[in-house]
């Protein structure tokens, strides 16, 4: 399924945060959304996911919903958003319980995603018993349990330490290789964007406008190979040069808020 954004704008009261944003995330593609703090990245994601009401422009999905999909537009949250009173399996079940699945299929789905995310042995654990990385794995397992058409990931690794982030990036690449889900991935981490995305959408500082869309011309599963590291570093530097000056201005603006 594709996601098409046309001339999307948004304002919180008198404060415009997005202006004339247009781009498309292709079928099975991962698009990273980067930009300075406060440029409207998360707002855009919430608009695409229907958690914010659209004010201007048009956001649409195109294509058929995959078989077995229960929630076409599915979020993975920065703060994991796990119910602390439910076990790992219970948190995944929350996304399934209100759908007319048989008990057997619900349990099969839960078992399958827990295995995919390396959580089988933690099915009965409570979130408080897990590390940050494992909690986010639960968030990802919950998202893929509904077989989404589009994954909307809001800085999913930013609350994690650097080593856990590396591990989870490898997990995400493995999951995407299997699921091929269209993904819109918000991050402030350029390395993450270059490592995971097929294309990087660069937003300007507030109000966020598209500054550039940069393709990453190396298959995701080959980006760790030594022959590509130079090119990827060059891309990283190019992206940084695009947002550095604006990030500095945004940083000073934020301090005055």
């Amino acid at each position: 399924m594709q996601v098409v954004l046309e001339d999307v704008g948004y304002a919180y009261g008198d404060l415009p945060v997005l202006d004339g944003v247009s781009f498309t995330v292709g079928e099975g593609e991962t698009a990273a959304l980067i930009g300075p703090s406060g440029c409207g990245k998360s707002t855009l994601l919430n608009l695409v996911g229907g958690l914010l009401e659209q004010q201007g422009g048009r956001i649409a999905t195109m294509g058929t919903v995959p078989a077995g999909c229960l929630n076409p537009l599915t979020f993975v949250f920065q703060d994991f958003a796990l119910l602390p009173w439910r076990s790992v399996a219970g948190n995944v079940a929350l996304a399934l319980e209100h759908h007319p699945l048989g008990r057997a299929e619900q349990e099969a789905r839960i078992a399958s995603v827990l295995q995919l995310c390396g959580l089988t042995d933690f099915a009965d654990a409570l979130p408080k018993q897990l590390s940050g990385g494992m909690r986010q794995r639960v968030g990802i397992a919950r998202a893929i349990a509904v077989k989404p058409a589009v994954m909307l990931m809001d800085e999913p690794l930013s609350a994690l330490d650097a080593q856990t982030r590396e591990l989870l990036m490898e997990d995400l690449i493995a999951i995407w290789a299997r699921e091929r889900t269209t993904t819109l991935y918000v991050t402030h981490n350029l390395s993450e964007a270059v490592r995971l995305a097929d294309k990087v959408v660069v937003l300007s500082r507030r109000p966020g406008r598209i500054k550039r869309i940069v393709s990453v011309p190396v298959p995701v599963n080959e980006r760790q190979k030594p022959e590509h590291i130079g090119l990827l570093q060059q891309l990283h530097d190019e992206l940084w040069s695009l947002i550095k000056a604006e990030a500095q201005v945004a940083d000073r603006e934020m301090q005055h808020v």
Binding site: G49, T74, F75, F77, A81, L94, A95, H98
Partner: peptide, 25 residues
């Protein structure tokens, strides 16, 4: 609020959000 938003994002109805998220929370 993030738990309520999460439940909304998975399509839970208001009644379900009240009983599965708000009441235990």
């Amino acid at each position: 609020r993030n738990l309520i938003r999460m439940a909304q994002s998975f399509g839970l109805s208001t009644r379900m959000i009240v009983f599965k998220v708000i009441l235990p929370g």
